[in-house]
Amino acid sequence: MRLLITGAHGMVGRNLRAHPGMSGFELLAPARGDLDLQDGAAVRAYVTRNRPDAVVHAAGVVGGIHANMAEPVRFLAANAQIGLNVVLACREAGVGTLINLSSSCVYPAALGRDLSEDQILTGALEPTNEGYALAKIMAMRLIDYARAEDASLNWRTLIPCNLYGPFDKFDPGRSHLLPAIIHKLHQAKTANAPTVDIWGDGEARREFMYAPDLADAILRALDPAAPRLMNIGVGQDHSINDYYRIAAQVIGWQGTFTHDLTKPVGMRQKLLSVRRQTEWGWAPLTSLTDGIAATYAHYLEILA
C-alpha cells in the first residue's frame, strides 16, 4: 500500500514513520519545502501524480496557549486552508482511505469530562484556541460530507487527546504543556534555580498520551472496520501540578513550585470518553512516567 503522510516531519508524522508497522508500506513523506499544503493547486497535483492508496492527514499549524492567543488569525486561516486542500485533493484523486487527525479542542469548553463524539458542536468553544478548533471542525465535517456522498470511502476522523513525546517542540513560544514543563524544569535544574513558576493555580486538568501510542492507533485505524469518528486517549487526566511534580521527579529537580494567578489556563478540564476506543479493542500502553522519561531523553539528545 502506498501511504501519504501529511505533516510527516512533525511530531505525529515522525512517530508514525518510526513505528515498526510502517515497514509494510511504500511511504510518501513530503517535507514542507517539497509540498506547501496551503497551495491548493500544488496539493491536488501532488496527490494526482503520486496516487496514494491511503492518506494520513497529520499536518497543521500547532502551538500552545500562548501561540494560539497571540496569532488567532494564523491558526484559523492556515489550518482551514490546509484541511480544505488535503480533503478536496483526496476526493478529486479518488483516494479510498483517509484518516484525518483532529483535536480535542473541538469539544465545547463547558463540558469538561467524558467528552463523547456526539457532543461536538453542542456548545461554545474554548476562546484561547477557538480558531484552531474551528479549522479542525471544518475538516472533520468535510470528511463526513464526502462520505455521505460516496459511501464506499474508507474515510474517518480520529480525535486524539493532548500529545507529547519524541520529536516534540520544546520552544516555550511554540510548545504545548508537557514539553514546556520539561524544558522549564531542565533549565531550573541546570541553573540550580530554587523555584519554578506555574501558570494559574495548577488545578486545571489535562489528558496526555505518548505520541508513539497514537501512531499505533493510526495504523490500526486504516482497517475499514474502525469507527468513522473516534476519540483516542488514555481515559485518565492529571492536574497541571501533577505533571510538574512527575516531570520534576523524572528530571531530578527538587525545588519549590510557585503559582502566577494572573496567567491564563484555558479549560479547567478536558477529558475524552474512550468508550468507542475501548469497544474497538485498543488502548495505549505507555505509562505517564515512562513516556516523560523517554521524552526527556529525546530532549537531552537535541541539546547535545
Rank of each mutant, 00 (worst) to 15 (best):
I65M: 14
Y296L: 13
S102T: 11
I182Y: 02
A70K: 14
R91V: 12
E130W: 08
A135T: 01
R147S: 14
A80C: 09
G10M: 00
M11T: 01
I99H: 02
G63F: 04
L222N: 04
P172D: 10
D237M: 05
A193P: 00
D171W: 03
G123P: 12
S116G: 11
M22T: 13
L219G: 02
L37Q: 07
T262Q: 15
G112D: 06
C105P: 00
A59F: 06
D53A: 15
R32C: 03
F75K: 04
G165V: 05
Q38H: 07
M267S: 13
K184M: 09
R276K: 14
I82C: 07
V234K: 01
Q81S: 14
N231I: 01
L111C: 08
G10T: 03
P30M: 06
L177V: 14
A211M: 04
T48G: 15
I240K: 01
Q236Y: 05
I232S: 00
M230I: 07
R32A: 10
P20Y: 10
C105T: 12
M209W: 00
L121T: 12
L229M: 14
W280P: 05
G7V: 02
L177F: 15
M209V: 00
L219S: 06
L185E: 05
I159L: 09
A45C: 06
H176C: 11
A135V: 03
L285C: 09
R141C: 07
P179T: 05
L261Q: 11
L153S: 04
W280C: 08
A248F: 05
D39I: 09
P284M: 06
A135I: 00
Q236F: 01
V234R: 06
M22D: 00
L153V: 05
N162K: 04
G233R: 00
A294K: 13
V86P: 05
H57W: 11
M11L: 07
F75G: 02
A109C: 13
H238R: 15
A139P: 01
Y243S: 06
N241P: 03
A304R: 15
T278G: 05
K263F: 09
R32F: 03
A226L: 06
G255Y: 05
I246S: 04
N68F: 12
N100F: 14
L111K: 12
T195I: 02
A93F: 02
E92P: 00
A78H: 10
E279T: 08
L28G: 08
I198D: 02
G266A: 11
T262I: 10
S104L: 12
A109T: 11
R268M: 12
A304G: 15
Y145I: 12
Q249I: 08
N15A: 09
L158G: 10
A151V: 11
